[in-house]
């Protein structure tokens, strides 16, 4: 009986030690980490609000994480920076507002840590999400056409509608992001780690 408790206790100890060492201690180490105040008085990283925040929920609900990372590796380790995915490596401070984290572990598609800096155009994001083949021929990304209202040939497109390139897509000539589409694009445009944090150069 006492031997059994010793066994169970030893087993329990192995897991408690690792959760303490790997999760609780790093978390304690990060407690002192605060956003920095930029020259213009705004904080980096800023809290997510409004459409950006809801767009983050759309990103999670679609499972974008299974093909896209949001972390740039340091110079000399991989080619993240040379590929233009970021200007510096990512550091813990970049993720202070990220709950849950969306670091990701797979790059079937490119890294998105700074996609907002790389692709600031709203219409690029709209076309890419509506049909990735329009902007990235040969991509294996699924279509997110359900984030868009379609304007058919012969219909009068609203002023803010985005024209599809060439002859359109079937009988669709223009698209207009719906609520969730606008939110997701707002989130993607906000993803930007180009602010130079001092610890990223160490």
């Amino acid at each position: 009986m006492s031997k059994t408790f010793l066994l169970a206790f030893g087993i329990l100890l192995t897991i408690l030690s690792s959760v303490t060492g790997l999760v609780l201690i790093p978390n304690w180490q990060f407690q002192s980490l605060k956003p920095v105040v930029k020259a213009d008085g705004r904080r980096y990283p800023e809290a997510y609000f409004g459409d950006q925040d809801k767009g983050r929920g759309v990103y999670i609900a679609q499972g974008c994480i299974y093909c896209h990372t949001q972390q740039v590796r340091m110079k000399g380790y991989g080619a993240d920076i040379r590929r233009g995915w970021g200007t510096r490596r990512s550091v813990p401070r970049d993720y202070l507002e990220d709950r849950p984290h969306q670091l990701g572990t797979m790059r079937t598609g490119p890294d998105l840590a700074s996609i907002g800096a790389r692709q600031p155009s709203e219409s690029w994001h709209a076309l890419h999400l509506y049909n990735p083949q329009l902007t990235s021929p040969g991509s294996v990304m699924p279509r997110y056409n359900y984030f868009f209202d379609e304007v058919k040939r012969g219909q009068m497109p609203p002023a803010e509608a985005i024209r599809l390139p060439g002859n359109g897509h079937g009988d669709v000539t223009h698209i207009l992001p719906n609520e969730r589409g606008r939110q997701l694009i707002a989130y993607l445009k906000r993803l930007n780690q180009s602010f130079p944090l001092p610890e990223a150069n160490q």
């Binding site: 999760v23 990060f30 813990p92 993720y95 202070l96 984290h101 670091l103």
Partner: peptide
């Protein structure tokens, strides 16, 4: 919080 959550996730 933050990246400690990522560690917890992969732990």
């Amino acid at each position: 919080d933050g990246v400690a959550q990522a560690i917890a996730n992969w732990w």
